[in-house]
Design a binder for these strands. Structure first.
Lengths: 162, 162
DNA sequence: CCCCTTGCTGCGCAAGCTGTCCAGCGATTC
DNA sequence: GAATCGCTGGACAGCTTGCGCAGCAAGGGG
């Protein structure tokens, strides 16, 4: 389980040019088409590649403001709070965590003013004791996976210096 | 600027079955192929759809542990810290925020023990004054966009009750 | 009221890709 | 040595893509 350098190159290639298709990918990588097909099948089966869904930009949808909210939950209310948050479209992501808060969620909104409405909706629920929100100003490192893929791909190649 | 219900249905369809292609999509949606093609082109040009890159699961790559770190930065060190964090493969995402901390980043690691190594590497940099980390236990709402797309798509349809 | 622009439809075509076989072959394992 | 595994290179039919075109309905402007 894991990926080898060829898998890594394939992922990087697809990341840059997702539309190219198996045949073109095999040409770029210098391997047979069947090989690319087999690698893709394996990685999809492995769960390494979850899919190729469209990456939608919330900002272009009219939601340019992103924020992270840390929520403190009343004991035993976890499941209810999760269900509540799942119904809010502006909640893009929700995690339960260790540490100060109990949950961390990613929100988007149409504007800073609109963020207030979203937050009210999020925290307007009984099980939530407290919420602290951090508004995102910049995103110097957008969600990325390639560096990790490269690292993982090289581990299959590690030659100890014997 | 925005999307209409047909755009929304198209995005949802591609989300569920990314491999279907334009022709099949047009059949499913009950519109002409050219229409689907035009919508896709427009949404890509708009930036609504950023791309169709592979969605890679860090867990399947051997990094099952996710954490969020809030970093406090020394005045004026922002750019250096950003550059530093960008070099760490385990940093999947970085935001600068308002609020308590100054930055929020998403980390992954091979294990809880390995997380220590990652954190050491992240905070082992001069500009970082303090870091507090929250380890993700559960992910009740994985990163999603569909509910927001649906909401955005319906806004073009709003009929006031006159 | 008419004209023009815009977006959707339905069609056709050539070119290219996909899905799926197959046999051969070198490397690795038992 | 024999079997297994992954890659190669090739072949095939069937389907999809990219592209262009004409017709048509709806909405906006003059």
């Amino acid at each position: 389980m894991g990926i080898d350098p060829l898998d890594g190159r394939l992922i990087k290639l697809l990341e840059r040019e997702p539309r190219i298709g198996v045949l073109e990918a095999s040409r770029r990588l210098g391997v047979a088409r069947g090989t690319v097909q087999a690698r893709l099948d394996r990685m999809r089966a492995n769960g390494v590649i979850r899919g190729f869904g469209p990456q939608v930009d919330p900002a272009a949808l009219g939601y340019p403001v992103t924020a992270f909210a840390t929520l403190e939950i009343k004991q035993g209310q976890g499941p209810d709070v999760r269900a509540h948050l799942a119904t809010v479209p502006e909640v893009l992501e929700l995690h339960t965590t260790t540490g100060h808060g109990d949950m961390l969620c990613r929100l988007v909104a149409r504007s800073n003013a609109d963020l207030q409405r979203v937050i009210d909706r999020v925290v307007g629920f009984d099980g939530i004791v407290r919420a602290s929100t951090a508004i995102v100003m910049e995103n110097p490192v957008p969600l990325r996976i390639i560096p990790l893929v490269e690292q993982a791909a090289q581990e299959g190649t590690v030659q100890d210096g014997t």
